[in-house]
Write a protein that binds this DNA or RNA. Sequence first.
DNA 1: TCAAACTCTTGATCTATATCAAGTTTTTAC
DNA 2: GTAAAAACTTGATATAGATCAAGAGTTTGA
Lengths: 192, 192
Amino acid sequence: MYEIFQKYLEEKTELTQAESERIQSFAIIKKLRKRQYLLQEGDVWKYDAFITQGCVRTYTVDEKGSEHVNSFSIENWWTGDRESLMMQQPSRFNIDAIEDTELVLFTHENFELLCKEIPAFNNMVNTILQRSFIAAQNRIQASLTLTAEEKYLNFVNKYPGFASRIPQAMIASYLGMTPETLSRIRKQTAKK
Amino acid sequence: MYEIFQKYLEEKTELTQAESERIQSFAIIKKLRKRQYLLQEGDVWKYDAFITQGCVRTYTVDEKGSEHVNSFSIENWWTGDRESLMMQQPSRFNIDAIEDTELVLFTHENFELLCKEIPAFNNMVNTILQRSFIAAQNRIQASLTLTAEEKYLNFVNKYPGFASRIPQAMIASYLGMTPETLSRIRKQTAKK
DNA sequence: TCAAACTCTTGATCTATATCAAGTTTTTAC
DNA sequence: GTAAAAACTTGATATAGATCAAGAGTTTGA
């Protein structure tokens, strides 16, 4: 499955053969069965992780035991807990697989080495981070300004395909509403 | 007021005398009176902006004319619209001064030039971006999991000092609640 | 220095969404 | 293939926070 990451790299950046091989030499392939954890609350996250196949969710569990989905990541996206990674502190998040999933992992030391050695790789990583930040800003904006129905329509529009492969209750959680509310909204909007 | 930025640079990074002077050569000093705009909706944002003194808010205005505060930035922080800057598209945001404010601006071309020329500067910028992303993630998490009262307490705790210099109605907007609700929460928590 | 313009508070009422409680349908695993 | 588990729907009711309205403080600028 490394070819998928390879292809991603080719699209996003320009690398020499040697650089490309250098990157591959550090890659760790990991497979997760549905429901299996990539990261558990309390553990320190130590990787940079790219998904080549499948889908994971990042979420917290509150005192009452309810789950709050922070994000979904599918193939051709990155996942992990940047705060835990950067601060080397136990994560507040859980990450588990919604589907059988395959990933390419790099330990953070190796990843930083690659960033240092390969300027094009470093630039790519920075661009991704910028886009992630912009996406986070937009999500904050949406959560402040939109109604429950608008949030759902915005989500479907922004991430077509997600709605069909992710259980509704998880989407509801991601959008900050109950599964019942989402169910009623879907019924409503289906009519129109 | 450039000395404040100079001091910030010294704290965050290691620069040679020449690099330091190179950076200063591109700096544009800008002053804003209270209520004056730094960016208006529809304009394309073209700078990287550091606040040396004062406080600005970034917000949108919806169809009904209500304002939604996306963020506050005070001295020793950066401000601007990264999405507009990166995509070179008209901004959805307004940025204006809550207090008389002084900034150091760099046109984005110059800023990128500095990033290219000075690796230490580039690293600093990336670190800031990472932290911004983490802060955005935490804000999303808070908006999903906390009650109105918890959001306010979390805000006061995280940004001590902000509550006293920013009008309550703007804080309420930032936290995604009405000014009336925030007023009642403050009354409640003052009792305890 | 004082009137106008903000800013904050308080009360009454309303509403979007949550919660609780059954059902029904779909998926999973042996 | 079928029983158990998971996912989704629907209805009744509750509630956090919104909205509307008015008054009290506070700031601002001529």
